[in-house]
Simulated assay, not measured.
Amino acid sequence: MSLKGDRLKDEGSRLQVTAAGATAGLIARFVIAPLDVVKIRLQLQTHSLSDPLSQRNLHGGPIYKGTLPTLRHILRAEGITGLWKGNVPAELLYVCYSAVQFTAYRSATLLLHSTLGEDTLPQAAESFIAGAVGGGAATASTYPLDLLRTRFAAQGNDKVYASLWRAVAQIQREEGVRGFFRGLGPGLAQIVPYMGFFFAVYETLRPPLSGLELPFSTGGAVAGTVASVLAKTGTFPLDLVRKRIQVQGPTRGMYVHKNIPEYAGALGAMRMIVRNEGFRGLYRGLTVSLLKSAPASAVTMWTYERALKFYSGLGERSEQSL
């Protein structure tokens, strides 16, 4: 089924779109897992590197500075597996998130077409609305996995949670159901404009770049990279606040960074970060986040388009064999 065969969001059946989105998320997550761990460690680091060491209240926590030094520090202190901490809930998160995101994005687009007509809205506006709906639906439905991913990635050699299932049981016992949704507010506040802007830029750039041939890349991958960098930079402070709030609760002082303050809501967290760490504190980990999000988005969109063609081909062959 295709309303417009050359447009990403209109290709394939609902099942094929869901399967392609899940496949893209699975592969992209494994590729960028080490950079994701580094990003989370930098985001949770609350002391200013410009302060004298004697004034830093570290409680034995490590000092990270820069992407490559942080990678080396984790490798040296925790081994190669330290770079894939939290990968199990993260893989589940990316598979479920991508599947829900692309499905909701396609459904929102078709709904706009059926209610307003296909050419009523400019393409950028239509993509922004559909992207925001897709991102919001995926974030809300998979948020507990995002929280678990963050908490496992924040662990050092002293494990806070022995396993995924024990983490679920412990959070439920000590924090209740609400504990799984810490930081959902800034998460939604970040993802709606992020995904809306991402898809708007992506759908705007993809047609003119579609004929671009690059080594190991396509015009779609380039469009996805540019869209991701612009969207991530604009919404990064909310992502950092979300990470800080996700590790609140009874285990707050047990992660690698043992000096994470206690925050009273997203706005309170933002005010405290600016007061104690300066405006730059809201952008801790931005460099590695861009290094992570650009290839992640490129891999996701590249894999999605090819997976969708593969599953669509399977569907056509199945129909022909009947």
Score class of each variant (00 low, 15 high):
Lys4Phe: 12
Gly21Asp: 01
Thr23Ile: 06
Thr23Trp: 07
Leu26Val: 05
Ile32Asn: 00
Thr46Ser: 13
Asn57Trp: 09
His59Lys: 15
Gly60Ala: 08
Pro69Ser: 02
Ala77His: 00
Gly79Ala: 06
Trp84Ser: 13
Pro89Asp: 00
Cys96Glu: 02
Thr109Cys: 11
Leu116Arg: 07
Thr120Asn: 09
Ala124Ser: 15
Ile129His: 01
Ala132Cys: 04
Val133Phe: 01
Ala137Lys: 01
Ala138Glu: 01
Thr142Pro: 01
Tyr143Ser: 07
Pro144Lys: 06
Thr150Tyr: 11
Ala153Cys: 10
Gly156His: 01
Lys159Met: 09
Val160Met: 00
Ile171Asn: 02
Arg173Phe: 09
Arg178Val: 14
Arg178Ile: 13
Arg178Trp: 10
Gly179Tyr: 09
Gly187Trp: 01
Ile191Glu: 07
Ile191Thr: 14
Val201Met: 10
Leu209Glu: 03
Gly211Ile: 02
Leu212Gln: 01
Leu212Tyr: 04
Thr218Val: 03
Ala221Ile: 02
Pro237Asn: 08
Asp239Cys: 13
Gln248Pro: 04
Gly249Gln: 09
Arg252Asn: 09
Tyr263Lys: 10
Ala266Gln: 08
Arg275Val: 12
Tyr283Thr: 10
Arg284Leu: 05
Thr300Met: 14
Thr300Glu: 14
Tyr304Trp: 05
Tyr311Val: 15
Gly313Ala: 06
Ser321Pro: 04
Leu322Gln: 12
